Amino acid sequence: MSRLILHFPEQQFYFTTQLTVRITDINAGKHLANDSMISMISEARARFLYQFGIEEVGENEVGIIVTDLATTYRTAAFARDTLIFEVGLMDLNKYGGDIIFRITKARNGELVALAKSGFVFYHFAASKVMPMPEDFRMRFPGVNCLPDYA
Rank of each mutant, 00 (worst) to 15 (best):
S2V: 00
R3A: 03
L4F: 06
L6P: 07
E10A: 12
F15G: 06
T16C: 13
Q18V: 11
T24W: 01
I26G: 05
G29H: 11
G29K: 07
K30C: 04
H31N: 13
H31T: 09
L32I: 06
M37K: 07
S39D: 13
I41Q: 08
R47A: 07
F48V: 07
F48A: 06
F48I: 04
Q51S: 15
E56S: 11
V57K: 12
N60E: 12
I64P: 00
V66M: 13
D68Q: 10
D68K: 05
A70C: 01
T71I: 15
R74I: 00
T75C: 14
A76L: 02
F85N: 09
E86N: 11
V87C: 08
L89F: 06
G96Q: 06
G97K: 08
I99F: 07
I99Y: 03
I100K: 02
R102Q: 11
I103S: 03
E110N: 12
A115S: 13
G118I: 08
F119E: 05
Y122A: 01
Y122N: 04
H123L: 04
S127V: 02
K128N: 13
V129G: 09
M132T: 13
D135L: 04
R137K: 08
R137G: 05
R139L: 14
F140P: 00
C145N: 03
L146Y: 07
A150W: 04
